[in-house]
Design a protein around this nucleic acid. Structure first.
Length: 805
RNA sequence: GCGAGAGUGGUGAAAUUGGCAGACACGCCAGACUUAGGAUCUGGUGCCUUACGGCGUAAGGGUUCAAGUCCCUUCUCUCGCACCA
């Protein structure tokens, strides 16, 4: 028995690729635009645990695809780098005193080695890490462009605060009211923040999703996250007050059904309008709401709470006086922070009205008649109890009432978004310093671009102060600086950027990673952009992918990039679960270590198995047994390769199988359907194996097909064929369509849709002849005895169905 | 609760337009061979039935000559959102 020597083969070819720079991407102007592809993986955060088996899944998929493209004459950009700022390294630093740079770079070295051990065809000359100053110089530069465009501003706002990490979090970093990183419940804290005006791009971020070839569920998630909603702002006069109260509603047609108003506890009018009689109760309620964590406040299961302010508003459509309440089911951050409550047609308002015994007036009816409102009905219908508007269908009513309100200066059509501005600062050390100086004379002053990068200073302690300031605040000599404008004493911004910053634009830096004059040159942009295929986990559906799109659009508006969208096609690889279908986790002890797999079975087996498991996009459980099966397949290939090469002609059947295999592997590889491509290669190998010989031409073709999947073995087989490396530079094989056709087809003979017999018939046989054969088939005649054939359906080359009675 | 996706052998999964359900692989069974290292080779393997045959793609209904595929209802699982007015 020959044991397939994968360890030495893999080492040999990895060394060769590295030495020869086989996969260097070059900007060759003679390659036409349509023959260039930019294929990108989501770069990893180099955690201390090393590579996870989930990483190689997406990376293998893009690698196979890139190798396939190169063999088809494409110029391919396929880079890799590291998302190197982030909390884990800093938390580790707090615990051990190790500088985050030291631990991060150690992890990067480990990751790089692990990734290289899988034989991916990256152009390593383009590697970037977001934490190096020649990289974050440009992250800072982009921030300054946002600032200068008025898209970055400072505000003291209540933010999500993780008491454990002692830092503010973006909405997207809060999962079920808890910190996504550490799991502690998130509280609210009012601190000074840097905020990016992503809301200014809400409409375009929404609209341009239509330009993208992304999975529909991901687009939908982004649409929901942006949460566009059309309605109207309506102004209500207040009784005994100068001020008026503006509310947002998507159902201005239900104005006649508004029986009370509700303000968020934080609404600025609350203090003004509350009457002396209700002051104490209102203040208590506000105090209570303030203390609640986000989790408590958004808990849907809880009963609605609220108090009456004592004030009343006047309904503009009928002059009716309606009471104003406050309740924490109204969010200050959405719309105007106030609503008109229409309990008959809104579930939440209904619940509230029931609890506090407020009137419920039906103003919409499905059939135009009045009903006893046992529950809220939120659907469209016909207006009732609405004065001159009675009888109007909801849609029409909306238009009419908005016009009515506009004429009187009482309201206007309004669009609201759920999307909030992006809280961009972190009270942390290990991130890009925000390049801003606070001058007592000039105010907020950007650091001049020529002074970038603004380097992270060394600190004694990484522990957050917990006061809402980063550890940077403790370094006097760094914080104290001079104002770039007036030259007077000034202080540096001590907040740093969130981890998303670096990953917002890394795909651009890959184009031109060494350029120290500009973040990316126009020539490189023109050559490669946009990213043709972007592969990564679905967990980034609304985080990274929305932020990156936002930055890209800003850069596009400023003329710095050449496409409105960065990522043309997106594919999410499914998760790899532990054996048994449960999540892989340290606590369950079912984590598979890629290093051990590579050592025992080789990188080619690992790659191929992960592709053979099932479709790329779905989650699937790991099975070491399954991996062994794939390993056996490669071993079998090796044993065929050890046979002496034959110059004889293989059988016609085998030639046909080869051509079918080329066709199927080509089609499936191009469509990222790697599992079925591999199955087809297995079918071919099983047949070839039985011949106990090895036909040279056939073997050459098969080696080419195999090489994107098992690149090390591919190179080795190519060399054994006495060919010059690299196999990755050869042309992808073609197939002869004629040879993929069967000369004989099996035709199914059915009676009333049930298969009763089969006949092998020549391909291309006429339908008439098929019918004749079906009717003369012995078995069929037997079963048809005493029955009458009513109808005969034939599908050419496939079946004859006899409908009989 | 709302939204999206998925449910096929003992297991991972295949199945252009509706046209032989279960390719390929794991596991299992039998046999061969051995140089016993997760060996290798050949054959078998959806379920029920001695057989003929029947039944089978979460459950139920429908459309159709024909349904894993299309339509309706229900159930289960996964993911996302979660008082967004």
């Amino acid at each position: 028995m020959s044991k397939y020597p994968f360890t030495s083969i893999e080492k040999k070819w990895q060394d060769y690729w590295e030495r020869e720079k086989t996969f260097k991407a070059v900007e060759d102007p003679s390659v036409p635009k349509e023959k260039r592809r930019y294929v990108l993986d989501m770069f990893p955060y180099p955690s201390s645990q090393g590579l996870h088996v989930g990483h190689p899944e997406g990376y293998t998929a893009t690698d196979i695809y890139c190798r396939y493209l190169r063999m088809n004459g494409f110029s391919v950009l396929h880079p890799m780098g590291f998302d190197a700022f982030g909390l884990p390294a800093e938390n580790y630093a707090i615990k051990t005193g190790t500088h985050p740079r030291i631990s991060t770079e150690g992890n990067i070295d480990k990751f790089r080695a692990q990734i290289k051990a899988l034989g991916f065809s990256y152009d390593w000359d383009r590697e970037v890490s977001t934490h190096t100053d020649d990289y974050y110089k440009w992250t800072q530069w982009i921030f300054l462009q946002l600032f200068k465009k008025g898209l970055a501003y400072e505000a003291a706002t209540p933010i999500n605060w993780c008491p454990s990490c002692k830092t503010g979090l973006a909405n997207e970093e809060v999962k079920d009211g808890c910190c996504e990183r550490c799991g502690e419940p998130v509280t609210r804290k009012n601190i000074r923040q840097w905020i990016l005006k992503i809301t200014e791009y809400a409409e375009r971020l929404l609209q341009d999703l239509d330009l993208l070839d992304w999975p529909e569920p991901i687009k939908l998630m982004q649409r929901n996250w942006i949460g566009r909603s059309e309605g109207a702002n309506v102004t209500f006069a207040l009784e005994n007050h100068e001020d008026s109260l503006m509310v947002f509603t998507t159902r201005p047609d239900t104005l006649f059904g508004a029986t009370y108003m509700v303000l968020a506890p934080e609404h600025h009018l609350v203090k003004k309008i509350t009457t002396a009689e209700h002051r104490q109760a209102v203040e208590d309620y506000i105090e209570q709401a303030n203390r609640k964590s986000d989790l408590e406040r958004t808990d849907l299961a809880k009963e609605k709470t609220g108090v009456f302010t004592g004030a009343c508003a006047i309904n503009p459509v009928n002059g009716k006086k309606i009471p104003i309440w406050i309740s924490d089911y109204i969010l200050i951050s959405y719309g105007t922070g106030a609503i008109m409550a229409v309990p008959a047609h809104d579930e939440r308002d209904f619940e509230f009205a029931k609890k506090f015994d407020l009137p419920i007036i039906q103003v919409v009816s499905e059939d135009g008649s009045l009903h006893d409102m046992k529950e809220a009905s939120a659907g469209d219908g016909i207006a009732v109890n609405s004065g001159e508007f009675d009888g109007l269908p909801t849609k029409e009513f909306k238009k009419r009432i908005i016009a009515w309100l506009s004429e009187r200066g009482l309201g206007e059509a309004t669009v609201n978004y759920k999307l909030r501005d992006w809280i961009f600062s972190r009270q942390r050390y290990w991130g890009e310093p925000i390049p801003i100086v606070h001058c007592p004379v000039c105010g907020i002053v950007p650091v001049p671009e020529k002074d970038l990068p603004l380097r992270l200073p060394e600190v004694e302690s990484y522990t957050p102060t917990g006061t809402g300031e980063s550890p940077l605040a403790g370094i006097e000599e760094w914080v104290n600086t001079t104002c770039p404008v007036c030259g007077g004493p000034a202080k540096r911004e001590t907040n740093t950027m969130p981890q998303w910053a670096g990953s917002c634009w890394y795909y651009l830096r890959f184009l031109d990673p060494k350029n120290d004059g500009i973040f990316v040159s126009q020539e490189r942009l023109a050559y490669w952009m946009p990213v043709d295929l972007y592969v990564g986990g679905a967990e980034h559906a609304v985080l990274h992918l929305l932020y990156a799109r936002f930055w890209h659009k800003v850069l596009y508006d400023l003329g710095h990039v050449n496409t409105p969208e960065p990522f043309l096609k997106l594919v999410n690889q499914g998760m790899i679960l532990g054996e048994g279908g449960v999540k892989m986790s340290k606590s369950l002890g079912n984590v598979i270590n890629p290093d051990e797999i590579i050592q025992a079975y080789g990188a080619d087996s690992m790659r191929m198995y992960e592709m053979f498991m099932g479709p790329l996009e779905v989650s699937k459980p790991w099975s070491t047994r399954g991996l062994v099966g794939v390993h056996r397949f490669l071993d079998r290939i090796w044993r065929i390769a050890l046979r002496p090469l034959s110059e004889e002609n293989p059988s016609e059947d085998l030639v046909k199988l080869l051509h079918k295999t080329v066709k199927k592997v080509t089609h499936d590889t191009a469509g990222l359907e790697f599992n079925t491509a591999i199955a087809q290669m297995m079918i071919f190998i099983n047949e070839l194996y039985k011949t106990e010989t090895n036909y040279r031409d056939m073997w050459e073709t098969f080696t080419l097909l195999l090489s994107p999947y098992a690149p090390h073995l591919g190179e080795e087989l190519w060399e054994k064929l006495e060919k010059k490396p690299s196999v990755s530079r050869q042309s992808w094989p073609a197939w002869d369509e004629e040879l993929t056709r069967e000369s004989e087809v099996t035709v199914v003979l059915q009676i009333n849709g049930k298969t009763r017999a089969k006949e092998d018939l020549p391909a291309g046989i006429s339908e008439k002849r098929m019918k004749e054969i079906a009717l003369s088939n012995g078995r069929i005649r037997e079963l048809l005895a005493g029955k009458k054939v009513i109808k005969i359906i034939t599908v050419p080359g496939k079946l004859v169905n006899l409908v009989a009675k």
